[in-house]
Design a protein around this nucleic acid. Structure first.
Lengths: 233, 233
DNA sequence: CCCTATTGTAAGTAGGTACTTGCTTACACA
DNA sequence: TGTGTAAGCAAGTACCTACTTACAATAGGG
């Protein structure tokens, strides 16, 4: 009975051996998703090939057969990380800035908040893996640029103070938005309210800051008696 | 010449063996500094005891004799990480908000920028080591609270619009400041100018947003002809 | 001048890491 | 009814990790 082959025989007990139940593309996507999730919670060093394969429900060897190395897996996973960056766009011709900016900022804030684990972890890896900077900073960069273009259009309409630089203004609002979306769950005492009202308050403050406080070019901005005693308390 | 002791004798060639050249407290501080630096550039997993000891110019065993474990070393290092948080304070009674806020924000921005590596890395470790959150978020939390108290004093003077919430306003400015200080070196296309002019532009926009645009309660805010053709270009 | 405290070197333990090789199994398509 | 492709398991390589033990060498204080 060929006892020298006996140590191969017990393999028949495992019913799952060697099947190809999914298409290669599906398995690839499965590995990429698992890599993203493990990386987001454990970082580069913590995202071990063993753990990624386990999370994907596949064997470590399949991982290496598909991607060759851990590095290429993770880089590819991060490259496809933020697909729906342009889910909503600011209108080409501004009409109601407060409403338009509020819904746009709301969307961006929830997008950032959903990706907060991945973003935080990726930020922590910048010192060691600076090659991830381009496709980590691309998405917020594009958002800031879109906002800036919108502000320039608004200024061309004469609805923004002339001395406002759309670039820094855009950077300020996007930065505040980013910090709120990322820091909400770690500093609840600073961002106490719910996300939506925080964002709309930011937009209101911002619009007043650039001189577009209420519909139209500074309409209804007249406040005849500024020294209002009710300001106390 | 005692050849059986010869393998011990070569130790005489190493002039640094076994001396106690510094006080224990100095060596402790040396290890804490090295731990902070290595952690900032390599993260928790990357901050190996070997590397920390090497950076401190000490042996790995000395590290364990002083701190017992890598965990306690790093936690202690991070606890003492931000000593000079209160280097400058906002005045108790506001006088020139633009000047006072500008220098204060400038200081805070450079402080954050100097610690940016440590801050980024610590943010990346939040998922795995949530116990560092308290003494990571304490410093910005205190800063936001100080700014908020200042804004409340300003509002009590009637120099801020009554409908402004000092809490969210403070969160907005601090968030924008934080994002600029952290993101400057990774997204230069967004934060193009030098840090100082970015910060002062933020402060100007902010003060106009809360209705304290120029010295006194909305003095000199009159802009008789808003639809200014020069807004183009 | 010895004694204690503190450092160092050498070596080792138990485990985790990325990654490879050899072979087996099963599905899909011809 | 074969056959190729792609999955699985077992085992192993070479290296790094935190942490320990045993012992030698030094410095400063009594």
């Amino acid at each position: 009975m060929d006892p020298d082959r006996e140590h191969h025989r017990h393999a028949g007990l495992h019913p799952l051996r060697g099947r190809a139940r999914h298409s290669p593309a599906a398995i690839r996507e499965q590995l990429l998703r698992a890599a993203r999730h493990v990386f987001a919670t454990a970082g580069y060093r913590g995202a071990t090939t063993r753990r990624i394969a386990q999370e994907a429900g596949l064997s470590e060897i399949t991982l290496f057969r598909h991607f060759g190395s851990k590095d290429s897996l993770i880089h590819e996973a991060l490259r496809e990380a933020v697909p729906d960056a342009d889910s909503a766009r600011l209108p080409d011709v501004p009409q109601d800035p407060e409403r338009e900016l509020t819904v746009w900022c709301q969307l961006r804030a929830t997008h950032i908040h959903n990706l907060r684990s991945l973003i935080r972890t990726a930020m922590g890896e910048i010192e060691e893996h600076p090659e991830i900077i381009p496709h980590a900073g691309r998405c917020p960069g594009l958002a800031a640029q879109e906002l800036r273009a919108y502000l320039e259009r608004l200024r061309a309409q004469g609805r923004v103070d002339a001395d406002v630089d759309p670039g820094v203004a855009s950077a300020m609002l996007m930065g505040a938005l980013f910090a709120a979306a990322i820091g909400r769950d770690v500093m609840p005492e600073v961002y106490g309210r719910d996300a939506a009202s925080t964002v709309s308050a930011f937009v209101r403050l911002f619009l007043r800051g650039i001189g577009a406080g209420r519909h139209g070019p500074r309409a209804s901005r007249a406040t005849p008696h500024p020294h209002n005693g009710a300001a106390r308390r």
